[in-house]
Amino acid sequence: MKHKSKTLIAALLMLCGTFAINSVALAHEADCPYCKLKLVQNTKEEDNEVVVKFGNKRIEYRCIYCVVADQAKLKGDLVVYAPSEKAGSPIVLKRTDGKWTAPEGTLFLNTFKRHKTCAAESRAFTSRASFDKYVKAKGIEGAKALTLAEFLAEVAKKK
């Protein structure tokens, strides 16, 4: 009986410990400065955090649409680390003297209708093949692969 009690207490302590660990966030879970929804954290399989660096600032957004839509607030030259199809290998977008550039061949997805899905549906890809693979895996309908210029135009139009 005594042994059973100890086992029960140990199990409860483990349960409490698990809860405590889960309740402590491992990263800042702030809200997106643009859409005000929660930032989506990176996972082992997939990057989601969009990081914008300029000067000594480092601002996180929910998606690349939010960055471009909010860009008037961001002063100076920008470096944007946009999640790609591969975790840990972001695509680096730059705004230099107001002009945006991206690595050659970069394609953009921007199909979301509501911001609750913007992190999944406003992303960058290194190739057409990776774009198609992502869209198929996520079951995103009507997705169109956009060039940087088309993506920027789309943001400007929708904003």
């Binding site: 643009y34 859409c35 839509a69 909010d70 911001h115 913007c118």
Partner: peptide
């Protein structure tokens, strides 16, 4: 939830 911020382009 605030409706405006949930629409694409409607945050500001």
């Amino acid at each position: 939830p605030p409706p405006a911020s949930d629409e694409q382009g409607g945050a500001q």
